[in-house]
């Protein structure tokens, strides 16, 4: 029996990873307010994951990590995905994260998680793309794995059992 090796590639803050290696798992570990955008073309077995930190650039900075901001991160991910031959109308799009982990009492609420959720929904809608599944909001951190052999997207919230979306 041949046991195939699985290579886990961690997608860090602001990073965008794309691959057609079916032995690979793309992984965002410990998402708080950040959003993981997971895309998978089942025909080419092409997967992408972007670990997006903030809704949009406040100062119009052109130099930033490719997925730091959601407004540019979604565009960058779609561009790379198309360049690699993916067809968007059969692509599975899933989003994970956007939690409010740090709830300061009183009027100091940061709301980055909520603003990130709104931003990613808007950015995808502007491209005419539907979200196929999501695990977003709440107060718990999450990790997400995208298995490029099958397109399975498995989420594990802090202290809870993993589940597929």
């Amino acid at each position: 029996m041949v046991v195939s090796e699985i290579e886990t590639v961690v997608v860090g803050l602001g990073e965008l990873k794309i691959s057609q290696n079916v032995g690979m798992v793309l992984s965002c570990i410990g998402l708080g307010s950040c959003i993981a955008l997971c895309m998978y073309d089942p025909f080419y077995k092409l997967g992408a994951m972007a670990h997006m930190v903030l809704p949009s650039s406040l100062n119009g900075s052109e130099y930033a990590a490719p997925a730091k901001y959601i407004n540019t991160g979604v565009t960058n991910t779609l561009k790379k995905f198309r360049e690699n031959g993916a067809v968007l109308n059969r692509t599975q799009i899933k989003i994970v994260g956007g939690a409010s982990v740090l709830n300061i009492p009183g009027e100091h609420k940061l709301n980055i998680g909520e603003r990130n959720i709104t931003a990613v929904k808007q950015a995808l809608a502007q491209q005419g793309l539907a979200i196929h599944a999501a695990d977003i909001g709440g107060t718990l951190g999450r990790s997400v794995n995208l298995y490029l052999r099958s397109g399975r997207c498995v989420v594990k919230a802090s202290g809870q059992k993993p589940f597929e979306i």
Binding site: L13, I29, G30, L31, G32, S33, C34, V53, L54, L58, K68, A99, V101, L102, L110, I112, G113, L140, G141, R142, S143, S158
Partner: peptide, 16 residues
Amino acid sequence: DVGGAVVGSVLAEAFA
């Protein structure tokens, strides 16, 4: 929570 979620949320604000 997990360290990535806690510290990552703080960093998100700082890198705004």
